[in-house]
Amino acid sequence: MEREITLPAAEEMVRQFRVGDILYLTGKLFTARDEAHHLMLDRKTKGEEIPFDPAQMALFHCGPVVKKEGTGWRVIAAGPTTSIRMELFEDRFLADFGTKIVIGKGGMGDKTQAVLEKTGAVYTHYTGGAGALAAKAIERIEEVLWLDELGMPEAVWIFQVNRFGPLLVTMDSAGGNLYSELAKTIDRNKEKIHARIQE
């Protein structure tokens, strides 16, 4: 089903989301790729605070193109990056920071699936490369963090968004996983393909 969601999203609500649902988000997103995950988890380990609350926002695997305009910034293009790179630390990140909606592309692995079930979160897929479409739904940049240390793609950008989507739920908190379901079909198709090649 199609759902209009205003962030922050409560765990009880997110626990109802199922694979195949399409979400449109209004509220705040923060971007984080490899380096930003590292940095925030490192701060957590050291007992240091980070200057925003990831539990109130959706996490977007994205390295945007932004342009300086006057004293502010404007988003030019902001599609998702490949999420599986974040599999190394996403379970810890979601457990430690309480983020309930992850946006990326390509899906994630078993460790993330387990933490989604434990913490009541979902992984959603945004059309890869649709950077201009995404930028259109971003109303403004609220803040940028660690820009000097991490550079434009890896910095944490906080976006205020309006009807950001379509986001397809591909991993849910009840163990639903579009990728593992699909993998069974693909394996069957692969056998047929191999048989044809050997004809």
């Binding site: 994205c62 390295g63 945007p64 193109v65 030019i76 293009a77 902001a78 599609g79 990056t81 059309t127 490369g129 649709a130 950077g131 201009a132 479409l133 995404a134 930028a135 259109k136 379509p166």
Partner: peptide, 21 residues
């Protein structure tokens, strides 16, 4: 459809179609 909408927005606005340029 999202890809096709995205291509249209990029062309009309003369902006990169993907953030990974």
């Amino acid at each position: 459809r999202a890809i096709l909408r995205n291509i249209e927005i990029a062309r009309e606005g003369s902006i990169p179609m993907c953030q990974d340029t």
